[in-house]
Nucleic acid binder design. Structure first.
Length: 423
RNA sequence: GGAGAUAUGGCUGAGUGGUCGAUAGCGGCGGUCUUGAAAACCGUUAAGCCGAAAGGCUUCGGGGGUUCGAAUCCCUCUGUCUCCGCCA
């Protein structure tokens, strides 16, 4: 959620930056500003009325002490009238605040000024690419065939027990999953992230604070009896840890890593995008979250990118980094880089990580702030990234490292798997 | 799941209807003293909103109510603790 005072004071700049995201509803912005003007005027009136009431209450008390009951009663009657006015004003104030809030959350985050213009994934800018794209031998297979050939995962069994998109991992497939999780967590710890194991269900307030609610409700599985939601990413609990808190400047940056199952309904997905491990309803992910000082937060973003790139390098997977254009980045992000690995048999780039700086957009909703050296309280910047999402990594590992003899496990992972080939 | 207790500022802990945003201690910050530090002493130390400022308003777990006036009384929800039950 944007900071309304910032919009008020930088209207032109906000409009210009939102245009990068192809958001051109200037009327909405002006409507919010107009409502805010009214809000402030009503607020003033309301406060003055309340001040009068408070003052009278004090006078009434004094009058009683002096034994002047008649005068006190007179003033009481007057106060009762003023209370009606205060109530009316306060109701209007609350109504305005609510309306402003619901309209404000419809405005996306302002992209950083250097975000590429564009309308779709085709306009994303490839800023980095490395690793050799393997030339597969005759008879090489897509990962879903490899999964069943080596008995690594069972989709039919998942269908029976739960439904589509909930596979069982088995044997070396299950061990590979576990190895990757441990590998990612260890790498993150070594990079200074505090390991955390978060709850995988969260309450409504948390889902709201990180922006899953109100408009992405259909993407989440819900537990209506208890008012809970299954998390679509560990970002939700890992960021909500810091909801409604004020940290000290010297504590920044606060770096957290957590592994979790992630649950996504993925309503509307179909076809080759959901084939095999490409898109699941339940998957595993290690997420890194950083609470940063606004000064230097883009250096922190670079550090996150380097961390993710290092993981892919150690897994010996060819990858590229895309600077997402305005039209393809998320509602809440100010800058996003996507990491994609090359899926050699599918001949597809698969997104395995999305690293973003949200600047103050999330922090404003979270009420996550820090006290600077002068004692001023400011919103922090929040950043997060996947490091990494498992299924597509598994897909790429299987496809890119397949040989006629079996699937070769990258060196860095072998101490975690305990085997160097799946055959 | 049943019964009882409890919820106050960074922490501990007073406060049962009238200048209470709140006594006190600890912690933090600033200062005096000191070559320096410690001790001692003095001062300072919650957040949000409106306002150029002065200042005003709101907030004592959340919500609602009684009253001219609520941290204080009533209702309700939630969390925590203790006992019982169940249980990985």
């Amino acid at each position: 959620m944007l900071v309304i005072s910032y919009i008020r004071e930088h209207r032109e700049e906000v409009i210009e930056r939102l245009a990068i995201k192809n958001f051109t509803n200037v009327a909405l912005i002006d409507e919010i500003l107009k409502l805010d003007d009214e809000r402030r005027a009503i607020k003033k009136q309301c406060d003055e009325t309340l001040a009068g009431l408070n003052n009278n209450a004090r006078v009434i008390g004094d009058l009683y002490k002096q034994g002047k009951a008649a005068e006190a009663n007179e003033l009481k009657a007057k106060n009762n009238e003023m209370k009606d006015l205060a109530k009316t004003l306060n109701d209007r104030l609350e109504e305005l605040q609510q309306v402003i809030q619901t309209k404000l959350v419809e405005i996306p985050n302002t992209p950083r000024i250097d975000v590429p213009k564009g309308t779709s994934a085709a306009d994303n800018v490839n800023v980095h690419q490395e690793g050799e794209m393997p030339q597969l031998y005759e008879g090489a297979k897509p990962h879903w065939e490899l999964l069943s050939q080596y008995n690594l995962a069972d989709f039919d069994l998942g269908n029976k027990v739960t439904g589509a998109g909930f596979p069982f991992y088995k044997g070396k497939g299950a061990k590979l999953q576990r190895a990757l999780i441990n590998f990612f967590l260890d790498e993150a710890s070594a990079a200074g992230y505090n390991e955390t194991q978060p709850p995988v269900v969260v309450n409504e307030a948390s889902a709201y604070a990180t922006g899953q609610l109100p408009d992405k409700e259909a993407q989440m599985y819900a537990v209506p009896l208890d008012g809970f939601y299954l998390i679509p990413t560990a970002e939700v609990p890992l960021t909500n840890m810091f909801r409604d808190t004020i940290v000290k400047e010297e504590q920044l940056p606060i770096k957290t890593v957590g592994y979790s199952n992630c649950f996504r309904r993925e309503a509307g997905s179909y076809g080759k995008n959901v084939r095999g491990l490409n898109r699941l309803h339940q998957f595993d992910k290690v997420e890194i979250v950083e609470i940063a000082n606004p000064v230097g937060s883009y250096d922190r973003l670079e550090a996150m990118k380097n961390h993710v790139a290092g993981l892919l390098r150690k897994l010996e997977l060819p990858f590229r980094i895309l600077h997402l254009c305005g039209g393809d980045m998320s509602f809440t992000s100010a800058t996003t880089y996507d990491f994609e690995v090359w899926s050699a048999a599918q001949q597809l780039w698969l997104e395995v990580s999305s690293v973003s700086n949200f600047e103050t957009f999330q922090a404003n909703r979270l009420k996550l702030r820090f006290k600077d050296k002068n004692g001023n309280i400011q919103l922090v910047h929040t950043l997060n990234g996947s490091a990494l999402a498992l299924p597509r990594i598994v897909a790429a590992l299987l496809e890119d490292h397949q040989t006629p003899e079996g699937i070769l496990i990258p060196k860095a992972l072998q101490k975690y798997t305990g085997f160097d080939i799946i055959s």
